[in-house]
Design a binder for these strands. Structure first.
Length: 560
RNA sequence: UGGGGUGUCGCCAAGUUGGUAAGGCAACGGGUUUUGAUCCCGUCAUUGCGCAGGUUCGAGUCCUGCCACCCCAGCCA
């Protein structure tokens, strides 16, 4: 995992850490944490944070804790906990310790009593609506709650009774006593404990009051001895509160919160809320739908952990808003698969081709390379037969010379096999081409014909030996590059053609394709077995990404 | 009209104490090629680093003033 390609280029967070180490801060130690709330699946944006937090720690000989930020039992579940752990491990990272914010509930409670005793927290009995009213607005200061000056004894009594379950949800709340006139709204007496009579996935029914993020996170970081607490920019305004709590509690470990900008990627959405909607409304096939930017989706789509890590490294780490092009992600996975994926043949839109002068029942065994540039990947055998499938896009009844595929009356090479010539087209009742009758030149195996220049080379699959397979090709889930920035409801922005299912054929060797294998279907793209739906008897492939397609560009420009 | 941030090539992004604008992706030329892939070569910010002034022999880097965009008013995280 710790190859040089995983090293980040210069960024401001590394600069800070290097400086801290040079100055002997924290005794030169680096301990980070990744703190997901188990209320959804991890996505590529989380991968950025994971690579950063784990990456920085590893680079400086430190470690990273995985800590589930499980302070809101209403939205969380063990299903998400397990999915998150699996995704992080799959990405290639190992946490030092698995912790839960709920591990600290007892200590958090004691600290809360301490704050009350010191007059730094109070129980408010205003309704949620009133609290909102009293908070003021962005431009006007808030005003003190009438309960703000309750005595320490009363606060303590109330808080203990909150814990004991004497009150209903929403009846009381514990707030920090900071400054209702602060220009930073987060400092206007933030709530730190609310009553919730619900079972918690970790602590069961032990508690009916639950601490809130701002209070929990900094204390948890401190208790664990975190040195650098990396989070996204939305928490920048919360840093004064983070620091306030640790200072007032006089914690002996005061981690440094550092914020960076979150990832925005073209043609997708990154908010857990929207992802959850897509899943729950059945617009996709679960959290691991290959069109989703979730780690699980990317895994099922065929992305590799190394490619995702490389992507995270290449997008960099800054505080500026960023809009990363999908092309970068695609470029990275292509680059990784180019070297590692063995080549095979697969035809997505099959049309049968019959070579009339090739003897029926005969086979010519061809030894073909698994990789054009890497002999160590070996060879495999393919049988050339009288009937083969080629892709419909690789045949035209007429075309100009720029079209380097099969044209009626002209020649083309079937890759690794013979040069053939299209002689006649057979149509079905609907007028569609049902079959292409051809002839072949037996003297063209491994050599070019004399005096003629063949248009090009196309791939094929033996009709006699090929395996039928379902091949799924994906396009972006959304029709606009940044759905979040669009005023329209996201339902209107869904790309109805994000999934195309082909009933095609693949070469026999793919029968033994494994779940972790990636292949390049020559001239088509990179593919993998669909981990959810593929079976031995009915193969299902996902297209990870297409090959770079300059022909499509030429075609689009009106070149042919 | 409050507070917190950010503005360097179409996108991402480097740019330590001012010294004369990295790299990647994309794009565009060309070469190799039994994958229109890969690979290789070349072009791609020349009084230019949001704008306007200023300091300086010299500023993306310092100062002043503007402008634009993002985040914040959950008993969510």
């Amino acid at each position: 995992m710790s190859s040089t390609t995983d090293k980040y280029p210069s960024n401001f967070i590394r600069t800070i850490i290097e400086k801290d180490i040079a100055e002997g801060k924290n005794g030169g130690a680096v301990l980070t944490r990744f703190p997901p709330e188990p209320n959804g699946y991890l996505h590529i944006g989380h991968a950025k944070a994971i690579c950063l937090s784990f990456g920085m720690a590893e680079e400086f000989g430190g470690a990273t804790n995985l800590r589930f930020d499980d302070t809101n039992p209403l939205k969380e579940s063990v299903e998400f906990i397990n999915a998150i752990k699996r995704d992080i491990e799959w990405l290639g990272f190992q946490w030092k310790e698995e912790r839960y914010a709920s591990d600290y509930f007892p200590q958090l409670y004691e600290f809360a009593e301490q704050l009350i005793r010191e007059g730094k927290a109070y129980v408010d009995s205003l309704s949620a609506e009133d609290i909102r009213e009293y908070r003021g607005t962005l431009t006007e200061p808030g005003k003190d709650s009438p309960y703000r000056d309750r005595s320490v004894d009363e606060n303590l009594d109330l808080f203990r009774r909150m814990k004991a379950g004497e009150f209903a949800d929403g009846e009381h709340i514990l707030r920090l006593k900071i400054d209702m006139a602060s220009p930073n709204i987060n400092m206007r007496d933030p709530a730190i404990y609310r009553i919730r009579h619900v079972e918690h996935h970790q602590t069961g029914n032990e508690w009916c009051i639950y601490p809130m993020y701002d209070y929990t996170h900094c204390v948890s970081d401190s208790l664990e001895g975190i040195t650098h607490s990396l989070c996204d920019l939305s928490f920048e305004d919360h840093r004064p509160l983070y620091d306030w709590v640790l200072d007032e509690l006089a914690m002996n470990c005061h981690p440094q919160q550092i914020e960076f900008s979150r990832l925005n990627l073209q043609y997708t959405v990154m908010s857990k809320r929207k992802l959850r909607q897509l899943v729950e409304e059945g617009m996709v096939d679960g959290w691991d739908d290959p069109r989703l930017p979730t780690i699980s989706g990317l895994r099922r789509r065929g992305y590799t952990p190394a490619a995702i890590r490389d992507f995270c490294r290449r997008i960099g780490v800054t505080k500026s808003d960023n809009n990363v092009e999908l092309a970068l992600l695609q470029s990275v996975i292509r680059e990784h698969l180019e070297d590692s994926a063995p080549r095979v043949f697969g035809v997505l839109n099959p049309v049968k081709l019959v070579i009339e002068n090739f003897p029926e029942g005969e086979k010519v065994a061809l030894t073909v390379a698994n990789h054009p540039k890497d002999e160590s990947m070996g060879t495999r055998e393919l049988n050339f037969t009288r009937e083969v499938f080629i892709d419909r896009d690789d045949f035209r009844e007429e075309a100009n010379r720029k079209y380097k595929r099969l044209v009626l009356g002209d020649e083309v090479r079937l890759r690794y096999g013979f040069v053939i010539k299209a002689e006649e087209v057979i149509r079905d009742d609907s007028g569609e081409i049902a079959e292409i009758r051809c002839s072949y030149d037996p003297d063209t195996l491994g050599k070019n014909p004399e005096g003629r220049k063949v248009r090009g080379v196309i791939h094929w699959v033996s009709a006699e030996e090929g395996l039928p397979a379902e091949i799924r090709v994906y396009e972006p889930l959304f029709t606009v590059d940044f759905p979040d920035a669009d005023d329209r409801d996201y339902h209107e922005l869904i790309n109805s053609e994000s999934l195309t299912v082909h009933q095609g054929f693949v070469e026999p060797s793919l029968q033994k394709a494994g779940l972790d294998d990636r292949f390049q279907f020559e001239r088509e793209g990179y593919f993998c077995i669909d981990s959810k739906d593929s079976t031995e008897g009915s193969l299902v492939f996902n297209r990870v990404v297409g090959l770079r397609d300059t022909w499509a560009k030429i075609e689009k420009a009106g070149g042919a």
